[in-house]
Structure formats: structure tokens, C-alpha cells
Design a protein around this nucleic acid. Structure first.
Length: 423
RNA sequence: GGAGACGUCGCAUAGUCUGGUCUAGUGCGCCACCCUGCUAAGGUGGUAACGGGGCAACCCGUUCGCGGGUUCAAAUCCCGCCGUCUCCGCCA
């Protein structure tokens, strides 16, 4: 939720943000209008309610005729109070409804849609397979050769976009995620294994039930949602709390399964494990004072890049355009690894600065030096996912269909240097 | 799944039966000041969040797990839900 005061004091900033995202700026004026109506109906209600309470005290002390007379007055007043209260509640629902539809205010992201990102830099060297004298195989062919990925049985058991990681495939994922966890712990993060089913309030609070609600699995019988990332549970972790950030940001590293419906991505990335309904992820999550959020965002990006360096992948860093930001994000940087067989970049990490947007919805606050409270900023970023296996297999493959293990992962695979195809 | 008990201000508790004097008391913790060679002890005062109004001091409202209801009036009565604990049953 955006700051109502920002909306009142600087509606132009919010209008401009809506424009940059390609969303409707008229929402801003509708919300302002509803807010004005809410405040006036609230004042009406509160005045009457104060009168009712004062009369109630007289009733308690009075007796006989005096009491009877007061009761008739107060009965009449009670009806009015009830009516004004429901007016005020109605007005409040309208404001909330409108406010919930306004995504976070964009901060620094390029305007435009999915294709309007800005490339910040390239890291690593892309291999020239032609010069090496062989055509690269794609991750599924390699994965099947290694007996690491089994799509057919995934489909048999669960349907399209499900898979088994088998043998070295399962070990590779564990190695990657353990390496990510270890790096996070070394950097001072608190490791967390989080719930993957959450209540509607938690899911709504993180902003995932907005325009992309179709992406989220919902269990109707229990009215619970399957999370698409542990960010959801980690953001909810301190909901309704006042936390102490005087010693700096609170950083958590969440390990969880992630579930995505992949609605609207029919025919896209259908082969292999690039786009699947369920995968695992290690996610960084940070609660920090709002004025430190931009610097913290850079730190999260640096930690992501440290992981990418460990697995020795060439990648580029992009500044996502406003229209491609999630509801909660004010700015987002993605790291995309080179995918040799598709000759394109594939998103491996994504770090978002949600400023105070999620914290305001989830009521996560801190106490400042002057004793007041205020919403904190929340940020998140990827440290490793199942999808990384795609880029690792393709970029480190060798002419004989074996795959070189990047040095950063060897300690997690008992020193294994090469993954050999199974005959 | 069955039976019962409980959910009150940071923590612990009183208040609920018998609705109004609850503007939610008390203890602990915390903060400020006082006292005292230092420390401990003692004294005085202050100690929730959110919203609305005001330059401000301050005023008003909401919140006693959550949501409904009864009533002129609800922490208190009624209904539903959630959570915690105890016992029993069942299952990994």
C-alpha cells in the first residue's frame, strides 16, 4: 500500500508513477476523492459518538423520570450513531479498495513495458562453441544424458511442467542451494525454512494478489495460498510487529519450495525445467530503515552476483522497466545468464526494493530515535533456484556431453569435478 | 476427530458470574528526575498502537484474539471463527 500522505501531498508523483507503469492515473483522483469523503464522514461519526458516550454516563447516574427522559434521547441518538458509523465504514472500505489497487510508486526504473529494460552491464565471458568445434546441447538433453532430469515421469505423476530431479540432478540442486545458504549465513543472514501455505492476509499483504493473482495457487477448501517464493512468508514473519532496526537491517535467508501456476505462459519455455510449476529457491529478505533501502538493494544485488560468480556463469544485469515491476516493487534488478542453445539471456535472479509498500500492508514498523513508529522498507533477492541448473549444464558442458562442475560447487559434491553421462 | 480450560497495555496478572463508578487496576520491566562515596536499595513521575482535528499545549475516536449480534450502554451477555494448553482417539 502506498503512503496515503504522499497521495494527499504529492498526487502528481503517484500519477506519474501510474503513467510510467502503464496503469490508470485516474485511480489517484478516485482515491483522493474517497479519502476526502471518508474524513468528513468520520468526523460526523466521531462527534455523535462522543455525545453518545457522554449521555451514557448521565444515564448511569440518573434515576426515575430523569432517567426515562434520557433514555428516549439516547435511543434516538443510538440510531444516528449506527447510521453514521456504517457511512464511515463504507467510506473507509472505498478508500482501502482504491488504495489497494495502486501499485508501489516507481523509483528510478526506466518507463515502459517488458522490453524497455536498461542493460546496466555484462559480466563473464560467453563461450564460443563454434570455435571449440561442437554444437552445444540444451539443458534437457544434457540432463537426460546425466540421468539428472526426468520430465516424462514428472508429467506422468503430476502433469505438464513437473519433473523429477534424479541422482546427480538432485545432488546438484542441493549443492547449489546449500552453497547459497552458506554464503548467506556467512554474510550474516539468519537461515529460515518457511511455510509454503499462507493465509490470504499474508498473500495480499505482499502484493501478489493484485494484477498477477492468476499466477498463485489457491486451496479453496482451506482458503490458503501456495507461495511462489519464500518472500511471502518472510515478509509476513514480522507482520503486526514493531521491530528494532537500530543495529541495522534484519536479514533472513529463506529456503522453500515455490509454486507458480504459469497461467498465460502457454507455449513459452515448454521444454525442460526452465518454467515449471514447482521449484526450490534460496531467497534473501531484508527489513531495513527506508533511507537505507537503496543502498541495501545494491548489497543484495552484489550478493546475487557473488553467487553467480561461484557457479561461473556469464550474465548481464538489467534495470527492469516500470511496467514490468511487480505490484510491490519500486525498482527491480535482474541478473540474466546466457543460454547458449537459445542464444538469449535467462533470468536467474531478481532483486526488488519494495520500499515501505509491503510493510505498510503488513504493519511492520520500527521505533525511531524520537520515539515514534514508522513502516520499514522490505527488499528481496534471489540466491539460487532450480532454474540455475539449466544455465550451469549448458554453459559448462563439454564436447563429450559431460559437464564441468564449477569450483564453487565442488565442496558440496564431495569434490566432484565433472558430471559424466550415464551410458 | 471428541471433551475441557484459556486468550486483557512489553511481560505477568485483576476485572467477566451480578453490563454503566473501566478514563482497564496492580506487580515486574523500561525511561526521566530525586536521594545516596560507587553499587544495591529507596522515593516521585512517566510508560500501547492506530485514525481524525490543532502552530502547539491538547482534544476526540477506535482497539481487551478476530468477526458478527443483543442493548440507551459490552472487556463483561449471545453466536461463529482463529490460536494456545490439558486429556482422549486416530494417523505418519
Amino acid at each position: 500500500m502506498i503512503d496515503l500522505r504522499l497521495l494527499r501531498d504529492n498526487p502528481d508523483v503517484v500519477r506519474a508513477s501510474q503513467q510510467a507503469r502503464g496503469d490508470d492515473p485516474a485511480l489517484v483522483d478516485a482515491a483522493l476523492d474517497a479519502d476526502a469523503r471518508r474524513r468528513s464522514s468520520l468526523t460526523d461519526y466521531e462527534t455523535l459518538r462522543a455525545e453518545q458516550k457522554a449521555l451514557g454516563k448521565q444515564v448511569a447516574q440518573a434515576s426515575g423520570d430523569e432517567k426515562a427522559e434520557l433514555l428516549t434521547r439516547t435511543k434516538h441518538l443510538a440510531e444516528q450513531v449506527k447510521a453514521r458509523q456504517s457511512d464511515a465504514a463504507q467510506a473507509e472500505r472505498e478508500v482501502d479498495g482504491l488504495l489497494y489497487r495502486i501499485p508501489n510508486v516507481v523509483d528510478g526504473a526506466p518507463a515502459g513495458g517488458e522490453e524497455d529494460f536498461e542493460v546496466l552491464r555484462h559480466e563473464g565471458t560467453i563461450r564460443d562453441f563454434a570455435a571449440e568445434g561442437f554444437a552445444p546441447r540444451d539443458h534437457l538433453e544434457l540432463g537426460e544424458g546425466l540421468r539428472a532430469i526426468d520430465m516424462a515421469r514428472g508429467a506422468k505423476v503430476s502433469g505438464a511442467r513437473f519433473y523429477f530431479l534424479t541422482g546427480i540432478g538432485a545432488r546438484l540442486e542441493l549443492a547449489l542451494l546449500n552453497a547459497a545458504m552458506d554464503q548467506a549465513v556467512a554474510a550474516g543472514f539468519t537461515p529460515m525454512i518457511t511455510p509454503t501455505l499462507v493465509k490470504p492476509d499474508t498473500m495480499r499483504g505482499t502484493g501478489f494478489l493484485g494484477s498477477h493473482a492468476d499466477e498463485v495457487y489457491h486451496l479453496e477448501k482451506d482458503d490458503q495460498y501456495l507461495v511462489g517464493t519464500s518472500e511471502v512468508a518472510l515478509a509476513g514473519y514480522h507482520a503486526d510487529e514493531i521491530i528494532d532496526l537500530s543495529d541495522g537491517p534484519r536479514r533472513y535467508a529463506g529456503w522453500s519450495a515455490c509454486y507458480r501456476r504459469e497461467a498465460g505462459s502457454h507455449g513459452k519455455d515448454v521444454r525442460g525445467i526452465i518454467r515449471v510449476h514447482q521449484f526450490h529457491k534460496v531467497e534473501m529478505f531484508s527489513y531495513c530503515p527506508p533511507e537505507e533501502a537503496a543502498a541495501e538493494h545494491q548489497r543484495l544485488l552484489a550478493w546475487e552476483e557473488a553467487m553467480l560468480a561461484k557457479v561461473e556463469l556469464p550474465y548481464r544485469v538489467i534495470d527492469t522497466a516500470a511496467g514490468d515491476l511487480g505490484t510491490s516493487a519500486a525498482r527491480k534488478f535482474d541478473c540474466e545468464a546466457w543460454l547458449p542453445t537459445q542464444e538469449r539471456f535467462l533470468e536467474l535472479t531478481s532483486t526488488s526494493n519494495c520500499t515501505t509498500f509491503q510493510a505498510r500492508r503488513l504493519a511492520v514498523r520500527e521505533r525511531t530515535a524520537d520515539g515514534t513508529t514508522r513502516p520499514v522498507a522490505t527488499l528481496n533477492g534471489t540466491l539460487g533456484t532450480t532454474r540455475w541448473i539449466v544455465a550451469i549444464l549448458e554453459n559448462h558442458q563439454q564436447a563429450d556431453s559431460s559437464v564441468r562442475v564449477p569450483e564453487g560447487l565442488r565442496p558440496y559434491l564431495g569434490g566432484l569435478e565433472v558430471l559424466e553421462p550415464v551410458a
